[in-house]
Design a protein around this nucleic acid. Structure first.
Lengths: 344, 344
DNA sequence: TTGAAAGCGCTACCAT
DNA sequence: ATGGTAGCGCTTTCAA
């Protein structure tokens, strides 16, 4: 049959550089050179090989190349909980940025941090050239990677013992700013909706806020647990009211999505206008934070700059594994918004 | 130094199955067998090899394995515009589902559909075992993939000429439902905010709505262009009012995010209560659609079932390339919500 | 069950 | 500039 499509045929032998060589009447090494960036080949050779390649439908096999060069040109990206609205943007940008450098992203998503060991094993088996992780790795895990000689960049995680490079947003400073503004605007009764306990990001945000509040003379703070989801923000507010025996002056949520849930609960279930009767602040600066109904007061992470830094850092270390680990910390953008009564 | 970390050393020779074989005092083939699932090896052999492997820190090289087996155990996932809030969920679920089957995801993101050719080339070079694409491929592109003998699953795209399998949500039926409900509830002046013109999904949604409206006797429909973003929904509403010389009864947005933008514009800039003065409907059923401030009337895509179907379909075809293409269409869940005055 | 040997498709070194 | 050749680390016959 003439028009039969391929999914109907048996899997055929692959077209290799030898096929091209034969058709072009040159050696296989010559073909290899033509397909390598800055290699020595005469113009005529290029012509013939290109023509032959096109004719037989040749495409270099990146797997075979990776085997010999010891470079897969793949980087693993580990993301822990995509429910946090803010990861997709990160992922998009990382992939984009890496692709500009000829590097592909092998994606690993974690439902539970416990999966990380098996995922790590996978990544190493695939001989990735580097790893970007937005999930926390413990000492043994970092040591394992280091032993394999693979550079790592931690995203929004603190470097442990200088075993890995890291890029993060200065959450401490961000939370201090939020707290300071709220206190200066005469808020006194504070509550916090924290994030998942196994997220260092979340823990750090909460503790920074608590600490700054204490510094400013506010010791009593109601903390309720959340998991970064809208629903947990939504449930967090009634929990706060119950514990406090009434509404607080301000709620500090560990991320924007929970802040939004909290606002909805306050408005809808308690008839409390935000920000008139209640101030709510978040963290991250995700898309929905700018929806008119919420217009969150928050700290926006400079995702673009952070991803660029991450990629640059990792590429440098792939090129030169000797480079010592480095930590880059970016300030978040303060967004005054309209979900909190501030003086500014 | 004893405690020096690896990033300070030169890249070492990799630990191979030969190293394990030497330490265990067996042949290299034996090591290979022990690390292959259902291969023949005595219990004692297993023991010795496992022990030796652990001792030298051996990990099979997936790249080398891929070269010989002609199976990379990688699948390419192509996603076009992550700004559509609904892709992250898809991506998360796909990765999860594939990983349960021992398959890794190589991620490709497109900013413009024009990039697709180079991306395609990349995927093929990496010898992926299959492709899932949420971007439209033209006939040549599908033919190229087919020629390479790689199964494809189109996500929310119609299969072209039966060249590829596809999984999609029945948007036509969804839009018809939305339109019918609105018309039955006495809405007469309709406007549509369409999505990007290069998105077949968007075009189909818009045309389905227009067609059903016509069937129900409503010929005049104002259509303004959007790009799936919040901002474009926000700007779409004033554009509609201007064209219409006043507010419409109902706005049909091509996705949820634009519907949200539209609601914000109506409420904030025109003081029009939704749904009392204006009904707005969306499509997708993304997270923010359920935020209390919007509570969208929309059609929710059964993402989980769709991803499972996609993965199953692709895996079947990887196993047996002879299988003919197949199209699976899922109905969306009708969500009455509160952003439209309906009779139900 | 085990071992020897032949590649998978490519790059890189070495001659020419 | 070009061609021959030796692997990269693995799986998979084929004998033993």
């Amino acid at each position: 049959m003439d028009k039969e499509t391929n999914h109907q045929k048996r899997r055929q032998r692959r077209t290799t550089s030898y096929d091209v060589a034969r058709v072009a009447g040159v050696s296989q090494s010559a073909v290899s050179r033509v397909f390598k960036a800055g290699a020595s080949a005469s113009a005529e050779m290029r012509q013939r090989v290109q023509a032959a390649a096109k004719k037989v439908g040749y495409r270099p096999n990146a797997i075979a190349r990776g085997l010999i060069t010891q470079r897969s040109n793949m980087v693993a990206v580990v993301i822990s909980r995509m429910t946090n609205l803010y990861y997709p943007e990160l992922l998009m940008q990382l992939t984009r940025e890496f692709s500009h450098h000829g590097i592909r992203v092998l994606l690993f998503t974690l439902e539970h941090e416990s999966e990380i060991d098996s995922v790590l094993e996978q990544m190493l088996q695939y001989q990735v050239d580097g790893i970007v992780t937005a999930a926390m790795l413990n000492r043994e895990q970092l040591a394992l990677i280091d032993e394999a000689g693979i550079p790592v960049a931690l995203y929004n995680r603190r470097s442990r013992d200088g075993l890995a490079s890291a890029v993060r947003c200065d959450q401490e400073e961000g939370e201090r700013w939020l707290v300071t503004q709220l206190v200066e605007a005469a808020h006194r009764r504070f509550a916090i909706i924290s994030g998942p306990e196994d997220s260092t990001v979340s823990v750090e945000r909460t503790s920074s806020a608590v600490q700054k509040l204490a510094e400013l003379g506010i010791q009593e703070v109601t903390v309720v647990g959340g998991d970064y989801s809208y629903q947990s923000g939504r449930l967090g507010f009634p929990a706060i009211v119950k514990q406090l025996g009434g509404p607080p002056d301000a709620v500090i949520a560990a991320n924007d999505v929970m802040a939004i849930g909290c606002i909805d609960a306050a408005r809808q279930e308690f008839n409390l206008p935000v920000p008139e009767a209640l101030s709510v602040v978040g963290f991250d600066g995700v898309g929905p934070a700018r929806y008119a109904a919420y217009n969150l007061t928050t700290v926006q992470q400079p995702v673009e700059r952070m991803t660029q830094a991450t990629v640059a850092m990792l590429l440098e270390r792939i090129k030169d594994p000797q480079l010592p680990p480095e930590e880059r910390i970016f300030a978040g953008a303060k967004v005054a918004g309209g979900s909190a009564r501030l003086l500014i």
